[in-house]
């Protein structure tokens, strides 16, 4: 905490803007998870948190650690790459699993299996 006292004011403001922006976008995505009515609509909500939400928090963290020169920003880059690559894969798998289950149960409004068309 002592090191942050002689941080330039604009750096602190920039970090504050980015971190609050990222957290707010993540919260918005989570609110969407609660408010949306169908599973397929909910599938879109967490992507807000994993794109701009994670991006905002990571950029804030990068700025702060570069300004303090406490450590290298490599972990943030690794996390950013990892989250951007893995989230689409998990959401796609989940979407396909939900589609498969809904088709087996013959829910209305779901596109049928390929062979049935």
């Amino acid at each position: 905490m002592n090191a942050t006292a002689d941080l330039p004011l604009w750096v602190a403001v920039l970090v504050a803007i980015f971190i609050i922006f990222g957290a707010a976008v993540t919260l918005l995505g989570a609110i969407g998870l609660v408010r949306m009515r169908t599973f397929y609509a909910r599938l879109h909500a967490p992507t807000l948190g994993t794109t701009l939400g994670t991006g905002g928090v990571l950029v804030a963290s990068m700025i702060l650690s570069s300004a303090l020169q406490s450590r290298l920003v490599l972990h943030e880059i690794a996390i950013a790459v990892f989250v951007t690559v893995t989230t689409p894969v998990t959401l796609m798998l989940l979407g396909r699993a939900a589609l498969y289950r809904d088709r087996i149960e013959k829910k209305p409004g779901i596109p049928p299996f390929e062979s049935e068309r």
Binding site: T51, V89, L91, M92, G95, R96, L99, E114
Partner: peptide, 20 residues
Amino acid sequence: LACILTATPGTAWLEYRSRR
């Protein structure tokens, strides 16, 4: 393409039908 569409909020890739 699947990763781009799913990562973008608002669109989600569900299935690719290779026969069609």
